[in-house]
Design a protein around this nucleic acid. Structure first.
Length: 474
RNA sequence: GCUCCCAUCGUCUAGCGGUUAGGACGCUGCCCUCUCAAGGCGGAAACCGGGGUUCAAGUCCCCGUGGGAGCACCA
């Protein structure tokens, strides 16, 4: 049997982190077993589905690198097929028309909630011979699935184990609306059947649906797929993820400076583990992933661990690759990585990698390589610039004599000044750092100077001296 | 309310009857150091409660408790 998994989002919003993880698990499972991964857009809700959302989902998948073998299929393109199955079910009696008006249904539900029993359809139209008449009858009948009333249905779930439902708990759900359009629980079943989906990996909020879907499949004479219901992802407070409680949209993570590799690695470890291993390449994940190792309980998102992973990938992925991503973020904050006099971006990445948890942080902390500081960090300026005029003059002199401008030669020049003035290196490097970077933080001073180039270095030292003198007068 | 799912450090997790309950993030002490980091070596930190089963229970069973999901002409 070939393994076929699917990711079936409804296009009513962006690709959120929970969806991304289910997609990843499904993708990994298919890859692991040499199977196929299909993407299906569940857009039967005409009112809420939007083309923007479809694009957002596709964009998210592509950013994460989750490619699909088949699709995207759109359910709205398959209405003829659904109609066909519906007719067949009506004909063989596994489905029936229900004429109850919405008003009657609403009243029924309200009464059941009042009586503290599970809200469900009472089956009034289940065994009708002819359409009824009366005030509470709709002229646009819906179609309901005739759920077995006896016995029980067991969902053989790969992560939860066997979950048993009494059939009388399941109600006769609506599979086609009054306007004839099919509903979710029905189209899912038809699609999974037609697309020969072998393994359904989805959020455990669908666990209750699986019994109903199994029964529809059975009515259609088809074996249900293997189910694996993965637990939810919660926010930092352990609450359900929402737009309010932090970034749930995967594209927001890109914008916040995370690499897709970090995101994928983070996601795979949320609810899944392989012993103590934390870092997984894509190949390793494909090799090791198994639904049997998926956790049973919900997990909270842990942003600082994502940060750690992101920095790990910033430090270990090929420099040219990271540089490409950094360039994008530099552009996003108005810096031109290709500008005249701009630092070599790969060297920059190497210099900043170990002090950047995100690419946004790296871009922001690299601003001074592209623009002279507009002002000095107040505390750092006072502490390291004021009173350091002589040191800065000496540095200016020594550095202006450097012939081949490299980290090594800059280092020698700075070291020379320190020895000459009988100062510890810190006493020389720190004023210099503030002068060129505008603040107390930068990569090692020699690398910073090399990246900056001679002209920028010298002119910034000059500005800093002028500033320090002006402070004395003021 | 009814049905279903879940429960190990703050967080992500390992554990699959016998462990000093392990790792990771974060926090923290020390070292290194031109800043910030990164790195190295340490530390604090957990089996929700109660009953069983068993020679032995974080591990199996039951009951509580606490979370979560579902109960739509949404998906």
């Amino acid at each position: 049997m070939t393994v076929i998994t699917r990711f079936a989002p409804s296009p009513t919003g962006f690709l959120h982190i929970g969806g991304a993880r289910t997609a990843l698990f499904s993708w990994l499972y298919a890859r692991r077993h040499g199977g196929r991964f299909v993407l299906r857009i569940e857009d039967t809700d005409l009112e809420r589905s939007t083309p923007e959302a479809i694009n957002a989902i596709l964009e998210g998948m592509s950013w994460l690198g989750l490619d699909y073998d088949d699709g995207p299929f759109y359910q709205t393109h398959r209405f003829d097929r659904y109609k066909e199955v519906l007719d067949q079910m009506l004909a063989d009696g596994t489905a029936y028309r229900c004429y109850c008006s919405r008003e009657r249904l609403d009243a029924l539900r309200a009464g059941q909630i009042e009586a503290k029993v599970k809200a469900r359809y009472d089956g009034r139209c289940r065994d009708l011979d002819a359409p009824p008449t009366g005030d509470d009858v709709s002229d646009q009948p819906v179609i309901r699935f005739r759920q077995p009333r006896e016995g029980h249905t067991v969902v053989h779930d790969q992560v939860k184990g066997n979950v048993v439902f009494d059939n009388h708990e399941l109600d006769d759900l609506i599979i086609a609306r009054g306007d004839g359009t099919p509903t979710y629980n029905f189209v899912v079943v038809v699609d999974d059947m037609d697309m020969k989906v072998s393994h359904v990996i989805r959020g455990d909020d669908h666990l209750n649906n699986s019994a109903r879907q199994s029964n529809i499949l059975q009515a259609l004479g088809v074996e249900p797929p293997v189910y694996a219901h993965v637990p939810m992802i919660l926010d930092e407070e352990g609450k359900k993820l929402s737009k309010r409680t932090g970034a749930a949209n995967v594209m927001e993570f890109r914008d916040a400076g995370y690499l897709p590799e970090a995101m994928i690695n983070y996601l795979v470890r949320l609810g899944w583990a392989h012993g103590d291993q934390e870092i997984f390449s894509l190949d390793e994940m494909v090799e090791l992933f198994d639904v049997a190792d998926i956790n049973h309980s919900a997990s909270s998102i842990n942003p600082s661990k994502l940060d750690w992973l992101n920095q790990h990938y910033i430090k270990t992925l090929p420099v040219a690759y990271v540089a490409r991503h950094l360039a994008w973020h530099l552009g996003a904050i108005g810096l031109d990585p290709a500008a005249e006099g701009a630092p070599d971006i790969e060297t920059l990445v190497q210099a900043q990698a170990e002090r950047s948890r995100t690419l946004v942080e790296m871009a922001q902390n690299s601003r001074f390589f592209y623009e002279a500081p507009q002002s000095y960090d107040e505390k750092a300026g006072r502490k390291h610039l004021c009173g350091a005029e002589d040191t800065l003059e000496a540095l200016y002199h020594a550095l202006s004599l450097v012939e081949h401008w490299t980290a090594e030669s800059a280092h020698q020049a700075v070291l020379g000044v320190a020895e000459e003035h009988d100062l510890k290196l810190g006493k020389v490097a720190q004023p210099l750092r503030v002068a060129v970077a505008g603040g107390p933080v930068s990569p090692p001073i020699d690398i910073t100077l090399a990246l900056l180039g001679r002209d920028a270095t010298l002119s910034r030292i000059k500005s800093a001296i002028a500033w320090a003198k002006a402070q004395v007068e003021a």
